[in-house]
Design a protein around this nucleic acid. Sequence first.
DNA 1: CCTTAAGCGAGACGGTACGTCAGGTCTTGGC
DNA 2: GCCAAGACCTGACGTACCGTCTCGCTTAAGG
Lengths: 197, 197, 197, 197
Amino acid sequence: MSQPRKPNPARRSERSRQAVLDAARDLVSELGYAKVSIEAIAARAGVGKQTIYRWWPSKGAVIFDSFLALSESEEGMSLPDTGDLEADLKIVMRATVAEFADPAFEAPIRALNTEIIGDPALAAQYREKLAGPVDEAKKERLRSAQRAGQLAADADLDLVLEVLYAPLYQRWLHRSGPLTPQYADALVEITLRAFAP
Amino acid sequence: MSQPRKPNPARRSERSRQAVLDAARDLVSELGYAKVSIEAIAARAGVGKQTIYRWWPSKGAVIFDSFLALSESEEGMSLPDTGDLEADLKIVMRATVAEFADPAFEAPIRALNTEIIGDPALAAQYREKLAGPVDEAKKERLRSAQRAGQLAADADLDLVLEVLYAPLYQRWLHRSGPLTPQYADALVEITLRAFAP
Amino acid sequence: MSQPRKPNPARRSERSRQAVLDAARDLVSELGYAKVSIEAIAARAGVGKQTIYRWWPSKGAVIFDSFLALSESEEGMSLPDTGDLEADLKIVMRATVAEFADPAFEAPIRALNTEIIGDPALAAQYREKLAGPVDEAKKERLRSAQRAGQLAADADLDLVLEVLYAPLYQRWLHRSGPLTPQYADALVEITLRAFAP
Amino acid sequence: MSQPRKPNPARRSERSRQAVLDAARDLVSELGYAKVSIEAIAARAGVGKQTIYRWWPSKGAVIFDSFLALSESEEGMSLPDTGDLEADLKIVMRATVAEFADPAFEAPIRALNTEIIGDPALAAQYREKLAGPVDEAKKERLRSAQRAGQLAADADLDLVLEVLYAPLYQRWLHRSGPLTPQYADALVEITLRAFAP
DNA sequence: CCTTAAGCGAGACGGTACGTCAGGTCTTGGC
DNA sequence: GCCAAGACCTGACGTACCGTCTCGCTTAAGG
């Protein structure tokens, strides 16, 4: 018995790959995740359906990749470090709040979360490729704060990030309350009190 | 031209309603949210498709209702109040962690979240009918703690609940880390420190 | 295990059935058998593909049925019987030759033969529903001739029909020679000599 | 603009040509004409698809060629001539009947007829390359019979062959009756009576 | 003898059609 | 008048092949 035969990546058409990713991104923005079909992506990209099925295992994977490609530009990001942790975090959190208020981010980020909930493989990729690098940058800033004595030296940084961000994400996903700069500030203050040295 | 004519709820068949809800619940457990179809629910329930379309606007609504019906039994719940907030919360949080470890809860809760992310109307219903009563019970316990001086009197109780639960939910949904009793305890401790009087 | 579940013929839409048959006939005439697709038939008929698959097992069956429907009008046909077998047969054979010269008959009849060669079930249906009644009418005329002493009383009438028609059909299908009124006459003369009393 | 550039036959790979022809023959036997694809032929032959498209214009042409190649061995055949036309023809016709009963001939011959009906160019090739030589040999025997006074001197030999063979071919293609040695004999007798001197 | 252009295998590509599944609407007959 | 049943049109699924198009690689001809 033979396996489903893997395509040869060396022959892959970069032009098609980009066209698919672009089309996927556009369609998610226009229609929302649920209403995007692989047929529509293929048609918009001017690509045969088989070309999508050859390189991606599912609709979720295509759309996920289209986000991945987007964020690859902002690689190696790092957070501001003025020496004042609270001020720095508030800037970052307020920026996040602002981002979430931008309707252009709405559809893609909800799409991403819908996929991730139902597909462990995508969730793993998400953590590794998207959340991971960003979290690492944030933890770097927190370590700097630990060295400066602004944060408990033994604080579990993953936990710090969760306390800081999870309430914000949840409130946004569930639409269970307003996302205001004040809310961002409150989260920073609460977190710093919780993990004070 | 005539409107789509609303059905008369008085005539509604309770037997069919229950059969649909039961079938929906079973199928979500067996297949996961995405793979459940209205056709399959109707077939399993021994019900005409029209009967579903007559009474529910969408697949999400049916499935949501099937969860609602489940939780209506546990109405009027309240949290333990031994006078020791930390101990009481740890009991509750550890119970939550244990619940999330039960594979029978996996499919339905992920289904619920998938629906809620993409449908504001369902999200509102969720907050009102499911999360609301539970949160109110929790807040009642927190108010008791405020009166006992175990929690800052001016603490925003919604925020307290978010800091307590959102990290847990997010870690579970994203599968970004293990859910242990120790993790539950840590969240309680962090939250109490953050909102200490 | 359950069978593929048969549709209930009582609920069949006559409007759809007719539309499919008409579309099939038209498309075969326009494009030829090989280039007709079920998708195209469905589209032209304004019908869902499933409606075709529900009632017919294959493209061949649809197209065959579309011919069947056509010929049902000429049911109960009978051949001229002037008492002069040779003259009567020449009229009929010349008419057949003329029919084959009509380009509008070209595509459908070739289509029919293509199907029949490859599909025993269709071949059986063809013999029973299309060829059978026509052949019976012809044999009726031949029996009359036998009674009149113009044909050997013990002649195998199926064989007579084959000798009369098979050369004509083959010449036309293989395009191996011209179909002229003279050719029609020659076949009649040869056949009558072969089966003379 | 440049023409599609014709390949240089001198460079043609004989090994590939044979492999394609063999694969085509095998696949037609196994699957029947309709289910054979060019992809499958190429794969079975271990040949690139382009190699097929380079040398043959259509699936029909490949398969036709594969039959041609087969029959090239039996070139220059001739019929028995014992002086007794009836006996000689019965031997030949009974042999043909036997051939048609062999299931190994089933698929290829039906395939050949399917092609020929729909493609005038292939039909012409068929007459010239396959049917022609065989018919010529048969006509040679008939001419010998004419000289011996066993057949009308002015008989149209093409017509004789049609009367002799077309009923047999048609009965086989349409499966409209049994092919027995008696049937073969009957056809010979009828034909000889029809074209008696 | 060595280049060089052709044929070759492989297989990705943009497409069309396949046959299936489900969506949501509509109709029929039974209760 | 709701209900079970299920046919209908629609649209997407994932697959099979179409015929075209590169890729490197042999391989035979001609300079």
